[in-house]
Each structure stands twice: as C-alpha cells, then as structure tokens.
Design a protein around this nucleic acid. Sequence first.
DNA 1: AAGTCACTCAACCGCAGGACG
DNA 2: GCGTCCTGCGGTTGAGTGACT
Length: 317
Amino acid sequence: MGRPPCCDKSNVKKGLWTEEEDAKILAYVAIHGVGNWSLIPKKAGLNRCGKSCRLRWTNYLRPDLKHDSFSTQEEELIIECHRAIGSRWSSIARKLPGRTDNDVKNHWNTKLKKKLMKMGIDPVTHKPVSQLLAEFRNISGHGNASFKTEPSNNSILTQSNSAWEMMRNTTTNHESYYTNSPMMFTNSSEYQTTPFHFYSHPNHLLNGTTSSCSSSSSSTSITQPNQVPQTPVTNFYWSDFLLSDPVPQVVGSSATSDLTFTQNENHFNIEAEYISQNIDSKASGTCHSASSFVDEILDKDQEMLSQFPQLLNDFDY
DNA sequence: AAGTCACTCAACCGCAGGACG
DNA sequence: GCGTCCTGCGGTTGAGTGACT
C-alpha cells in the first residue's frame, strides 16, 4: 500500500498562481510565519496543495529573493560548485544569497550548460570533450577504431552521457558543432587559449566566451519577461488579505520580512571547504607538480591530436 | 499576418529523510 | 521498531513568449 496523496489532487487548483493567491500567502505568512504547509491552504483560504504553497513561497514570494538576472560572478560560482559537487542545486543555491535551487537549476539547464558545451567542455564532467574522447579510446581499447557506432554502455561517455549526447543533440548540423568547438576541431589560436581559461582562472570564464555565447546570453536576459518582476497592475495589496484568525504563531518564525531560514550550514560548509580547497589547489598548482592544470590538458590534447591525425575524419554519427 | 520553432522558467511530481508519537 | 506526517530535493513538464520562416 503506497503513501496516500498529500491532498485531494482532483479538488485543488494547479498551474500558475494569481496575484490574489500570492497575496493570500503573503498575508498569512506575515501573521503566522512559515510552517505546517499542509494546513496553510485551508487557513489562508487557498484551494491549493500545501506543497504547492510551500513551493510558491520558497521559489517566488520569499522577501529575501532576488528576481534579477544572474551576475557573471554568480554564474562562475555555479559552474565551480557544479564541477565540485554536481547537481546538488540546493547546496549551490545556499552559496548564492537570494537565489533558490530552482533558479540555479533552471539557469544551469538553460544557459550555463550550453555555454560550456559551446566552449567544448563537457557540462557533466567539466572536462574538455576531446579529453573524454581520448579516455574513451583508452578504456575501450579502440585506439584506431572510428566512432561509427555509439559507445558501449560501460564507456565513459555513456556514464556521463553528456559528451555523447552533446554531440548528438546540441546541433543537428555536425559541421556547426565542430566549428563551435574550437578545443577539438580547429587549430586557431582560440583553440590554444579560450576554452582553458576556466581551469586556470575561473573568474575569466564567462567574460572570455565567444561572441556567440555572450550575445545569446545577454540578449535573452534582457528580453526575458520573467527575469525582472513586472510591476503588478493590481487593485489590491497582499495586506488586504491579512486574516484575523488568531492561529498561534509558529515558534521561531517572525511575522515580518526578516523571517529566518534555518539551514544545515555545517554540511554545506564542508562542501564549500571542499570547493575552495579545489580552487586553491588549482590556483597554486598543487594538483600537478611540474606544470599547471591548464598546461597538462593542453599537452594531452596536442598529444592526442598528434597521435590520431585522422581523428577529425573518424567521426561519423 | 500566420504558422512553426526554440527557449525560458514556474510549477509539478515522486522520492528520501527527519521528526514525532 | 514502525507508521505517519512534513519538508527538502532533483528531475521533468508544459504554458507562455519571442524569434524565425
């Protein structure tokens, strides 16, 4: 016997929230604070699932949330955190005041992942795609085999699934993908420098993207209607929905905008420390004794291309 | 102008874990 | 230890919107 549903799904409203519904939640939380979300819909006069109310509050209505577009510094931090701990969005979001896990996750999926792909960096492993392909060749023992078929299930590419999917899905025109991935497929000076800035100088990552990357990002962020909260055209305010029902105030919550949100800081501090250690070690070159991380990858790429001059011709998806 | 495509992001879903009786 | 409830989390979906043809 499975768990009963949290509410009667057939009788609750779903979909986008109206300003009136938002106002009711704001009014309720202003008086009683957050807590026991399963009771809030009834007490606030909402025909919504409690879970939905909590999500609306957490992701949109909380007074400490930012609603503007992500800054370059925030994007860099997201990428670095993702490289260190993967898709643990809530942990990453805690490093970004005013951002929610949903914000971070959406931004990653819609913007940052594509930026990395265009730079020839696998967004799951954060390794250069060319390096992944080389590792795949080593693991599969197909040093001279061409990629006529998909990698086997135990290959590195299918483990991450990203590099392979990237080449299959990000563009329907293979040529355009190759030309957009200077790390792998061109001999230009850009190949030597641009993509690897990430590894040595994370702060330069997003400033140093190609024009196509930055333009697509900046242009969309300007035109996105949801990025900046639109001034509501409304005839009422949330305070109009303040309830007189004297429900006991939730312990530990405040009735004003300075509500606090307890978090498991210890756990994340460990993660943050791990991240900073990684950054520090990279910056100081302690990961690699003789040369920098960047140099090592560059060397590996050059080595691979020299060993497999037919690499470009071998791909046929 | 109309239709189609691509993108964004708010919201939903299912699962896991913690608290509590 | 067990069952229930609540909350948090990550993955996914789909409505809305702008760009393109």
